[in-house]
C-alpha cells in the first residue's frame, strides 16, 4: 500500500493520494445523504457538466505554471463561440451544412489563438505583468462581444450540432470525451515536450531560463496562444450545449478555474503543477456541486462551499507541513 502511494506520488505528484482520499470521503458522504447520488443518471449528468469548467481550467493551468495568469479565458471562449455562430449564420443558420461548421470551428480556433497570441506577445516582449495584460484583454474582449451582439443572445444553429453537446459515444458523453482528450494532450505536453519543460523552468525563474538558452519569449507567446485555443474549444462546446451564444456566459467560472488549479496543488508562484491532480480537483468540485444540488441546495451554496473547501484544504496543507516538520525533528 505504502509502496503504491509512493509510486503514485512520484508519477503524478504528491497531491494525488490526498485528493483521491478527499474524493472518496465526499462521495461517501453524499452517497449516504442523498440516495440518488450514487445513480448512473447522476454520474451521467456530472459528466456532462464538468467538461466546460474543465477545459477552461486547463486553459488557466499552463499560464499559472509559467508564473502568470490568464484572466481573459471566459471572454476568449465567448468570442470564439461568437465567431462560430457568425460563420454558421452566414451559411443560413439552422440550415448551414457541415462544411460551414468545419469552417466556423477553424475560424473560432483561429480567433482564440489570436487573442492568446496578442497577450503572449505583449507579456513576452514588453515584460508587462500577465495579470494586467490579460485583464486588459478581458475588458477588451467583453466590450467587443457586447458591441457585436448588443448584449443579446445568438441562437438558431443546425440540429446536427446537438450530439456534440448532448450525445454519448460508447456510454461516455461527448463533452467528457473532448475534455479527456484535451487533458491527455495537456498532460503529455507538460510532462514530455520541450515546450512543457520550458513552461516549468520559466515559471520558476525566467531569467535563469533565458541564460540557459531557452527561448523564453517564444515559450511565453506559445503558452498564451495555446491557452486561447483551448478557450476556443470550450467556447465551441458551450455553443453546442446551450444552442446559443451570449457574451458573459460562464463569467462566474473565471475565478473558479483559478480555485480549481490551486486546489489541484498548482504553485501560485509558478513552476509546479500537474494535470492529473487538477482534474481530480475538478471532479471534487463537480461532486460537491451535484451532491448539494441533490440535497436541494442551489448553485450559490455550491460556490460558497467551493470557496470554503479551498480554505479548508489550505489549512490542512499547513497542518500537514507542521506535522511533517515535527516528525523530521523527532527522527534526529
Amino acid at each position: 500500500m505504502r509502496a503504491m502511494i509512493t509510486a503514485i506520488t512520484r508519477r503524478f505528484g504528491p497531491e494525488v493520494p490526498a485528493l483521491v482520499g478527499f474524493l472518496a470521503v465526499v462521495v461517501a458522504i453524499f452517497g449516504l445523504a442523498a440516495p440518488r447520488f450514487l445513480s448512473l443518471a447522476n454520474f451521467d449528468s456530472m459528466a456532462f457538466q464538468l467538461p466546460e469548467l474543465g477545459l477552461l481550467t486547463l486553459a488557466m493551468l499552463v499560464p499559472i505554471i509559467s508564473g502568470g495568469l490568464n484572466l481573459a479565458i471566459i471572454y476568449t471562449a465567448n468570442i470564439a463561440g461568437l465567431t462560430l455562430a457568425w460563420v454558421l449564420l452566414q451559411f443560413g443558420g439552422a440550415e448551414a451544412g457541415p462544411g460551414a461548421f468545419v469552417l466556423g470551428v477553424a475560424a473560432a480556433l483561429l480567433v482564440g489563438a489570436a487573442a492568446g497570441a496578442v497577450m503572449g506577445l505583449v507579456i513576452a516582449h514588453i515584460g508587462a505583468h500577465p495579470i494586467l495584460v490579460s485583464l486588459a484583454m478581458m475588458i477588451f474582449l467583453r466590450g467587443l462581444g457586447e458591441f457585436l451582439t448588443r448584449g443579446g443572445d445568438i441562437s438558431g444553429f443546425p440540429s446536427y450540432l446537438a450530439p456534440i453537446g448532448h450525445g454519448s459515444v460508447l456510454g461516455l458523453p461527448v463533452p467528457m470525451l473532448i475534455f479527456l482528450v484535451a487533458a491527455l494532450v495537456w498532460h503529455v505536453m507538460l510532462t514530455r515536450t520541450r515546450h512543457g519543460f520550458a513552461v516549468y523552468m520559466i515559471g520558476s525563474n525566467i531569467r535563469a531560463a533565458a541564460y540557459s538558452g531557452l527561448h523564453t519569449r517564444r515559450t511565453l507567446t506559445l503558452i498564451y496562444t495555446l491557452s486561447g485555443v483551448l478557450c476556443a474549444v470550450a467556447g465551441i462546446l458551450m455553443l453546442t450545449r446551450f444552442n446559443s451564444v451570449r457574451v458573459g456566459h460562464g463569467e462566474a467560472l473565471l475565478l473558479i478555474t483559478v480555485l480549481a488549479c490551486f486546489l489541484g496543488g498548482v504553485d501560485p508562484f509558478g513552476g509546479f503543477g500537474r494535470v492529473l491532480p487538477v482534474v481530480l480537483a475538478l471532479v471534487i468540485l463537480q461532486v460537491l456541486s451535484s451532491g448539494l444540488n441533490l440535497l436541494g441546495a442551489n448553485q450559490h451554496l455550491s460556490t460558497a462551499v467551493w470557496g470554503l473547501f479551498l480554505i479548508g484544504v489550505m489549512i490542512l496543507r499547513w497542518v500537514a507541513g507542521k506535522v511533517g516538520q515535527g516528525r523530521k525533528r523527532k527522527d534526529l
Binding site: 520541450r194 519543460f197 520550458a198 516549468y200 523552468m201 520558476s204 525563474n205 531569467r207 535563469a208 531560463a209 541564460y211 540557459s212 538558452g213 531557452l214 513552476g271 509546479f272
Partner: peptide, 19 residues
C-alpha cells in the same frame, strides 16, 4: 539567480541546455 533554477530538480537543471 541566474545560473540555476533553484526550485527545480537537479536532473532538469542538467538537461536544460540539451533538450
Amino acid at each position: 539567480a541566474l545560473g540555476l533554477i533553484q526550485p527545480q530538480s537537479i536532473a532538469d537543471n542538467i538537461v536544460l541546455s540539451v533538450l
